[in-house]
Design a protein around this nucleic acid. Structure first.
Lengths: 343, 343
DNA sequence: TTGTAGGCGTTATCAA
DNA sequence: TTGATAACGCCTACAA
């Protein structure tokens, strides 16, 4: 009773295990009545087949895994929904696995691929600085979605979907400059970041340069290492420090909306106003950027389109229609209440 | 090469499979040198054992699964972190599984229990209206954490950790009344909700009653069914409609902070101010309630303590120290900028 | 249409 | 300290 197996069911039904298996897996060659009878017994006895045994035996399953780094990010919620939808529409099943910040997503993927006999993998978010050798251990197609990549990677070895973090970051800062801001502080990732943090920071530097503004290291602030990154709390803490400094600035560019929200709160708490005293700009286009007060100027990533494209590429890869593909989506500069013109 | 098994490794090392297994699983009776040698070969060949086979064979694993309903909720993030920490501190491994809104968490749990040979389960969030019969199919201990339960359940059949949603909701509305508000609108769950939505709504009604305020159905608004529940968008949409009505009110009580944020934005967009024109109160004590502008009056759930207690109870259950336990934590009424007194 | 038996990759048992 | 071998629970040729 404790642990029922397919054999128990077979015995109870007075049939062979094969027949039970057929009934459960919707095989064609089984009579409707025996099938119904078996299913009834299964229901009544609450028999649940053991997935491990299934996966072990099955040579291949039609499942796609989505590995998401740092589940905290609300940015992913919309994307996940699209993934799930699209994958199910293709009659594949969908497996979502969160990967911890300090876990190696490739290792998780390798293990999962074997365990679940995956057909494909989507890596969502995070950095990506793995050795080619490791990547090669993945024998099924995979797509890197919204992942900052260092450029050393051979583009022929993987597929990806993302925005151009450098360029879009540049656009944001360029916009700020065009509004007359010359003292633009940035809240960015740690200096040793090699991912989107670095790219967005580089975009900032370049935009300043092209606008004839001298780079001022006093205006570059990194997220606190001891606080979870890309959180409101982090933006808040950094901005508070920033405001205690006597360094002058008229705008803060936070490389994510969450940081921007934290920055706004710090400014307000200091008795200043956004955007009258300080303009604040974010990045990502999260929901909160619309609902916050003041609403946040941001760079909106086309999450739905990106998610759809991710799945499209993945299935093209699976069906061997393409070799590798890199799709860059344009982000949309949304100007809202949190920034103002100085001109 | 494609698919390496333990046998391949054994051959390469010139040992038996048992020895390889021993090396991998830190068994005591194996010499350090052979172990080192085997591990080296494994590393070099990137051999990764198949988890399905392991789970199938292993009679029991030391793993705890956390099933979380609707991953969207930022409320859970802090809790998850605590879970992970505590579980690892007990030398158990931690498996997080998201359960879709319209999926049956018990069924997922039953399957997972067999597949992974779980030692315990934490159900996080969502409603809980399952038959006793179904619950009985779970053969390992489980704890319901922050889950709204209908009262028909026999308390001797499960353990739980939560706040008293009815009472704390009552307190919030009572506070509003004490501030002189008599026309208090509520944004709540659908009327057929049987979970925290219902409990918080009942608390609202009772508080009004006890304050001698007539219940006004015109002031009761439910989340839109066609928009994801408990989102800013939902609160925003509902509040917009609310404002178009000529029904008067001085305060909005949203049964979650996210809804409250949406409500604020709708009010601001209508050219009104919070709290001067309308007071807005939330529930949960999410980060955003602190960072929003105006900061939100809310009922803060002691998430860390609740998470710790959840794990404590679970392990007590596993170690048969207790039978069943129900821990109710007090929430904290945090008064901030979004509400004002009318007196 | 149904049943028997072998194997999926591991770990546990027992003997060496 | 090691190694052969029997499970673990299921699926699937193949046979009936």
């Amino acid at each position: 009773m404790e642990r029922m197996t397919i054999i128990d069911i077979a015995k109870m039904c007075g049939v062979g295990v094969t027949t039970v298996s057929r009934a459960m897996n919707n095989h064609p060659d089984i009579s409707e009545e025996t099938k119904a009878m078996i299913m009834k017994v299964i229901k009544e006895n609450h028999y649940v087949p053991n997935n491990s045994a299934r996966n072990l035996k099955r040579s291949a399953s039609k499942t796609i895994a989505v590995l998401i780094k740092g589940i905290t990010n609300p940015f992913f919620n919309h994307m996940i929904k699209v993934f799930e939808q699209e994958i199910q529409r293709k009659k594949y099943s969908f497996f979502l696995q969160r990967v911890d910040e300090n876990q190696d997503e490739i290792e998780v993927a390798i293990e999962l691929e074997k365990e679940k006999r995956l057909k494909g993998i989507v890596f969502l978010g995070g950095y990506f600085s793995h050795s080619q050798e490791k990547l090669n251990q993945l024998t099924v197609p995979f797509v890197l979605s919204t992942i900052g990549m260092t450029e050393e990677f051979d583009l022929n070895n993987y597929s990806s979907v993302s925005v151009d973090d450098f360029k879009e970051s540049y656009r944001m800062v360029d916009y700020l400059c065009n509004q007359g801001h010359t003292k633009i502080a940035i809240i960015t990732a740690a200096m040793d970041d090699v991912s989107i943090g670095k790219l967005r920071y580089e975009g900032y530097k370049q935009a300043l340069k092209d606008n004839g503004i001298d780079y001022n290291a006093q205006l570059v602030w990194c997220m606190k290492e001891n606080i979870e990154s890309y959180t409101m709390e982090n933006g808040y803490t950094v901005t508070k420090e920033m405001l205690e400094t006597k360094e002058e600035f008229t705008a803060i560019y936070a490389i994510s909306d969450n940081l921007a929200v934290g920055a706004c709160r710090a400014i307000i708490e200091a008795g200043k106003r956004v955007p009258e005293d300080y303009s604040v700009a974010g990045f990502d286009g999260l929901d909160i950027s619309f609902y916050y007060n003041p609403s946040l100027t941001t760079m909106k990533q086309p999450v739905v389109e990106m998610a759809e494209e991710t799945i499209k590429i993945l299935f093209d890869l699976i069906n061997k229609k393409i070799t590798h593909s890199h799709k860059i989506f344009p982000a949309e500069l949304i100007v809202r209440e949190s920034t103002r013109s100085l001109l």
